[in-house]
Design a protein around this nucleic acid. Sequence first.
DNA 1: ATCGTAATGCGACAAGCGTTGCGTTTGCTG
DNA 2: CAGCAAACGCAACGCTTGTCGCATTACGAT
Lengths: 210, 210
Amino acid sequence: MTNEGVHADEHPVPGTRRPGGRTARTRAAVRDAVLSGLSDHGYPGLTIEYVAEHSGVHKTTLYRRWGGLEGLVADALDLAGEDTWTPPDTGSLEGDLRALAHEVVDAFADESKAAAPTAFIAASFQSQRAADALRAFYSERFSRCEAVIARAVERGEADRDTDAAALVRAVSAPLMLRLFVTREPIDAALADQSAAVVLAATRAGAFSSR
Amino acid sequence: MTNEGVHADEHPVPGTRRPGGRTARTRAAVRDAVLSGLSDHGYPGLTIEYVAEHSGVHKTTLYRRWGGLEGLVADALDLAGEDTWTPPDTGSLEGDLRALAHEVVDAFADESKAAAPTAFIAASFQSQRAADALRAFYSERFSRCEAVIARAVERGEADRDTDAAALVRAVSAPLMLRLFVTREPIDAALADQSAAVVLAATRAGAFSSR
DNA sequence: ATCGTAATGCGACAAGCGTTGCGTTTGCTG
DNA sequence: CAGCAAACGCAACGCTTGTCGCATTACGAT
């Protein structure tokens, strides 16, 4: 599915043949600069020259290796996915779902913390490459969350044929909708409501894949 | 470079003192050009010069009256909200919710139809003005949807203290999440699932306030 | 240690974007 | 039907963005 449309990936991806010393340093410096730039000015305010100055890497190199802002953000997004986050384990499905929802609220309550994730989504609207990276990120993230459902099934709190992927997405969906689409504020009460809705639907078998 | 800070709305909004003839014509022509531009190239590909050429309005005028792409898109978004859309009325809550969800899927199934709404959301990440217009649009849109809940309450399908605003948002939230955040495909089956989940939660009283 | 070459630095350049000053047209008012 | 000001068109300018050719650095292998 390399449907890249226009100019495919026309970049030989420099930095792969020689992954050592300097190349790795530049890459790390650039990633840091991109993340700090996103936090400071958001995606619309992020410019190549800002990254160049704050990383000490020349403008030309940025264009050559990453092909522009799209690639820079996509690369930073790949890095963001390489963390050790695991879903909460409170001992009950209700507790886990509530904790998950609250994590979303907390993550976007502080504006400085919300800047980078928001910027990634903004970038996904402008760049196919960033969109692919974002899909991969969330796919991986939600996969981890499915452990919550597996435990619930073990405890008999959910049917064995529960659609775990849909369930975990349903928890954060109302929050994400307000954050990125309708632009409404979110709070802890909304997180509780979202978790309660999903829990009730689960108990009613609405997530059972039949 | 001028003040890059929050220059609020620094535009005296020309075209308000003289709403007649030419001014109105240019405004309409510009709006059409913006919408066709969004459909053809999406928000990232939309350029001022494109709007100038396809509307017959000079570049300078566009900058003066709308202040740039942000304002142009925000203005077009205001227009988009002035339609006569009403939510479905199938005679049952389940039917209405399913119809609502399917409308979302249908609206974004065709790429040409999806371009403009997607572009509006993309614009909201880059422009406070577009974000405000988007919030107003969805606020109005969801308000109309609450009629569905009112009818359901009349029929005894939902509690009288049901949180209608949260309920109608919950229907489309999983679809919007996949469209704009996780970038996963959506289909009719997903719409049915979303409606079923919300219906089950409603029957369980999960949307009852307090 | 030495060499080949990948990777980066450097300066200059073309193209596009947004702004500005000024002249012209057009809509409102009396 | 005049007269004024608002809105617009026009051309030119400065700034930013992205690219190119060439020189330099330093990784990796012999």
